[in-house]
Write a protein that binds this DNA or RNA. Structure first.
Length: 466
RNA sequence: GUCGGGAUAACACAGAGGCUAUGUGGCGGACUGCAGAUCCGCAUACGGGAGUUCAAAUCUCCCUCCCGACCCCA
């Protein structure tokens, strides 16, 4: 059994074999930090966060880098509007990014390279591209990549240059020799943020930073390169060209792309103006519901965004969380002995791994959780489950949760609250015994207002924080 | 135009030749003083048309419609 990954490069699912056994070098394209991140970015972040978590769960030693594009036209323009320095603006949104990432339960990447801090590596790479004959310098001090020199352009896109030009949208501008040529170094306009280079003051083109930063920090070849599928062309295509022009080696063995989030049938994007900021959504939905919403679909599929969808995810997840907290409570109160759960547990683990091994099918993995919930709910109701068995299930769910991050962390038991609740529950039992339902219901209602949900059942009451 | 991905019950979303998909919502039952949770059951499916096959939601071909990429994008 091994992991299978849908590789954009070949369009097929391929067995995952890293360059170096047991190790995974992974680079995921991050965001251009000129504004707050939206739910579309959140999807990509959660998807790749989960993939990293799973690879680690499967025993791989993963190095994961995600970049920030902190120098680009939009940042420069936005900063000019606000009358501040470009890097001051990008620093602000990088800060926001981390605040938002935390609200999504994202584990930190090992390193976050920023274009502005990688100039020596970027300039070096541009020089190497020129030296290899793939780059040319223009009169104004810009440097372009020459696609004419490339043998098999369009590998990732599976397209020919001629076909793309027929779109009529690609135009020959400036000093380009071929309309498909792209800037790897842009000369600075007066007043713009710039760095010194052999070609004069300027800044990097969009695609070069990723190529340069990968090479600088991860090496010539990596295992997995990820990002949204809107980056396939031209961004990733061009990254491949740049890197291979210099190293002669494939940039990444596997290319993974997540599907777009759609709002009313259209892609969510800044330019469409139909986006929802993570920080706004996170006001109303917690990270577990948001993660569940995203992971309840395969990462490559398009996904509809609406508040109803989030509401739906929240309700669905509640079923799983109820099961999880019930198992937690049963662990303390359930009977000893009971049937052996080890076979069942092993089966669930196998199914979970089989689902995730198949191109990280989180949706199928979640179905395993629902199956587990149904059968354990039943065995708890029938008292055929032992407290030990419940404990084993809880650890199993904790294990799965290290990958998915959808169950809430059980807050440290406050012993005081436990005893207070015990008193209240006993008191209510007494009241109910005397059929003083008005009082017992009042207690339950008031607890609800205080954020504690009390549920009566045949053998005592259960409570949990909500 | 070229290339890619889709169309599955009320909704969302898996599956990929035969095996009860799953969840939310709906309806009906069990449990219950009530509420909630939980369990059991029910209903509504694989865009259309041909074909291959003993057997097709799944494979092949054709058609219709949707989304994305080709300027910026996760």
């Amino acid at each position: 059994m091994s992991i299978v990954i849908k590789n954009t490069l070949t369009g097929k699912k391929e067995k995952f074999v890293p360059l170096e056994e047991g190790k995974v070098k992974m680079y995921v394209c991050g965001v251009t930090v000129y504004d707050d991140i939206h739910m579309g970015h959140a999807r990509s972040m959660i998807v790749f966060d989960t993939i990293v978590r799973y690879l680690r769960y499967r025993g791989y030693d993963v190095v994961h880098h995600t970049n920030f594009t902190d120098v680009d036209d939009k940042i420069i323009n936005r900063a000019a509007e606000e009358g501040i320095d470009a890097l001051e603006l990008s620093a602000r949104y990088i800060r926001h990014y981390f605040e938002d990432a935390e609200k999504l339960g994202i584990n930190k990447a090992d390193y976050y390279p920023k274009a502005s801090e990688e100039m020596p590596a970027i300039i070096k790479m541009v020089e190497e591209i020129i030296d290899s004959g793939f780059g040319y310098v223009t009169e104004d001090g810009s440097v372009y990549f020459s696609v004419d020199k490339v043998k098999d352009y369009g590998r990732l896109t599976n397209q020919k240059i001629e076909d793309m030009e027929s779109s009529g949208r690609v135009v020959l501008d400036g000093n380009k020799k071929n309309p498909m040529d792209f800037a790897i170094w842009k000369s600075a306009k007066p007043g713009e943020i710039s760095w010194k280079s052999p070609w004069g003051e300027g800044r990097p083109g969009w695609h070069i930073e990723c190529s340069a930063m990968i090479r600088e920090h991860l090496g010539d070849e990596i295992d997995i390169h990820g990002g949204g599928n809107d980056l396939v062309f031209p961004h990733h295509e061009n990254e491949i060209l740049q890197t291979e022009a210099v190293t002669g080696k494939p940039l990444s063995k596997y290319w993974m792309h997540n599907g777009m989030l759609q709002v009313q049938g259209e892609k969510m994007s800044k330019s469409m103006g139909n986006f929802f900021r993570v920080r706004d959504v996170a006001e109303k939905y917690d990270k577990h519901a948001i993660r569940f919403y995203f992971l309840n679909t395969h990462y490559t599929s398009p996904l509809l965004y609406s508040e109803e969808m989030l509401e739906d995810a929240k309700n669905s997840l509640e079923r799983l969380v109820n099961n999880y907290t019930d198992l937690g409570a049963y662990m303390k109160q359930g009977p000893d002995g009971g049937e052996d759960v080890s076979d069942a547990v092993e089966k669930y683990r196998e199914n979970f791994i089989a689902a995730m091994d198949d191109d990280f099918n989180t949706r199928a993995a979640i179905e395993v959780l629902f199956q587990l919930a149904r059968t354990t709910n039943k065995s708890m109701a029938e008292k055929t489950l032992s407290k030990e068995g419940a404990g084993i299930y809880v650890s199993l769910l904790d294990e799965f949760n290290r990958v998915l991050g959808i169950y809430p962390e059980i807050s440290d038991d406050d012993g005081t609250l436990d005893s207070v609740m015990e008193i209240l529950i006993d008191l209510r039992a007494e009241l109910r015994e005397r059929k003083a339902y008005d009082l017992s219901d009042l207690i339950r209602d008031r607890l609800g207002e205080a954020g504690i949900r009390l549920e009566d059942s045949g053998d005592g009451a259960k409570w949990k924080r909500i």
